[in-house]
Amino acid sequence: MDERFTTKKASHNYNTRKRDLPSLPYIMKQTWTDSLFIHYPVNQQVLQKYVPDVLPIDTYDGMGWISVVPYLTSSMKLRGFPSIPGARQFPGYNVRTYVIVNGRPGIYFFSLTAANLIASTAARFFFRLPYYYLEIYMDNHNELVNFHSKSIKNSGAQLICNYKPISKPNPAAKGSLDEWLVERYCLFTITKKGVPLRCNILHRSWLLQDVEVEIHKNTILSALNISPATNEVIMHFSKRADVSIWPLVPAIYS
């Protein structure tokens, strides 16, 4: 089944975000390219069933959101080291929702996939994230991105789509839902004992473009047994983000 959508237009103070960082050096740099954001509205109560209670769901006008984000990691480099051999360029996608902890908005990941065994294993170990290695095909011809993932074993989650930007890049309007969805600069996870942890990231504000999308198969939400609250779908494209990543720190006291 094919679906076609078009989207809207994120801004945040870069220096303010710098002041919010923990007093530790970053540990990794990555570059993300050809990112597609597919945002679905989901009732807050539904989402909270799947998210630890210590990570309250964040809402916009009372509504929670879940997003599927395919993208290409086009570089990965540990601080003080050259690019990681075998992990320089690989596609992946993540499935995320939005939480707020100790007054700080961030992201909670249901799952992340990467077509690279080294990267997925390291992220699972060092960042306590539900990362999976998965065969994924992705290419870009004349700005048309083709993305084809295999299904995740035991869940059937699969994404097959192609997409193309159709406008000039702009930051999202201040205070808009678009800004709320993409301008998030930390992720949250928990320890085995349920203690919340935070990982900060830093990059320039997302430059977003309207996007035309054909979805040939998307079973990601159904694999989670989550249904959107409405038929409203918001999509964004962003060509590139150069990202610095910090180590995990306690979420509440830092």
Rank of each mutant, 00 (worst) to 15 (best):
S75G: 05
K49S: 07
A122S: 10
N94W: 02
P82R: 04
I107Q: 01
P105S: 15
F109E: 07
W65N: 07
I84T: 03
A115N: 14
F90H: 07
L72R: 04
P56A: 05
S67Q: 08
L47K: 00
G103R: 05
P85H: 13
G106H: 01
G106N: 02
S120N: 05
N102W: 00
M76F: 14
K77T: 08
V101D: 02
N94Q: 05
W65G: 06
L47Q: 06
S74A: 09
K77A: 09
T113Q: 05
L78I: 15
A87E: 10
D58R: 09
L78V: 15
R124W: 13
G80D: 13
Y50C: 15
L72P: 01
V101Q: 02
R79S: 11
M63N: 14
L72D: 06
V68D: 11
V69W: 02
Y60F: 13
A87T: 13
A122W: 09
Q89L: 14
L78T: 07
P56D: 06
S75H: 12
S74P: 00
R96T: 01
N116F: 10
D58S: 10
S120K: 12
L72I: 10
P91C: 03
Y50T: 15
V54D: 03
L112H: 00
Y50G: 09
L55W: 04
Q89R: 15
L112F: 04
R79I: 08
Y108P: 02
V101P: 03
Y98C: 00
S83V: 02
Y98Q: 03
S120M: 15
I66Y: 11
L112G: 00
D53E: 12
D58M: 09
K77F: 04
N102D: 15
T121S: 11
Y98R: 04
M76E: 12
K49C: 10
F90R: 08
S67D: 10
P56Q: 06
R96V: 05
I100F: 06
L55A: 03
I57E: 05
G86H: 11
M63T: 14
P91M: 01
Q89N: 15
L112W: 00
T59Q: 13
I84D: 00
N94D: 01
T73E: 09
V54T: 11
